[in-house]
């Protein structure tokens, strides 16, 4: 019935990043406006990261779970 341990770890690491996104948006909006890479604001970079990372983690899981 239980889910594989690796799935739990991948889930928790993504959750941490997502909570980080919520926290920065709500409590450190100034940070979101900074433009660290390629002249793009952190809001855009962090958002793209969360989307791309979801796919990467899923693909990693598929590899490991086979």
């Amino acid at each position: 019935m239980a889910i594989p341990r690796i799935a739990l770890w991948l889930f928790l690491s993504y959750l941490a990043l997502y909570v980080g996104f919520m926290a920065v948006s709500a409590f450190a909006p100034g940070l979101m406006a900074a433009t660290p890479v390629a002249g793009l604001p952190l809001s855009i970079l962090y958002g793209f990261l969360l989307i791309v990372l979801a796919f990467v983690l899923a693909a990693v899981y598929l590899r490991v779970a086979q």
């Binding site: 019935m1 239980a2 889910i3 799935a7 739990l8 991948l10 889930f11 993504y14 959750l15 997502y18 996104f21 948006s25 809001s43 855009i44 958002g47 969360l50 989307i51 979801a54 983690l57 899923a58 899981y61």
Partner: peptide
């Protein structure tokens, strides 16, 4: 950007679907 927040949240939800509930 506010509309994009929905995009981010909707996609992130799939992580819960895949890692937590799908298999059981």
């Amino acid at each position: 950007y506010d509309g994009f927040l929905y995009s981010i949240g909707y996609l992130a939800g799939w992580i819960v679907a895949l890692f937590v509930v799908a298999e059981p």
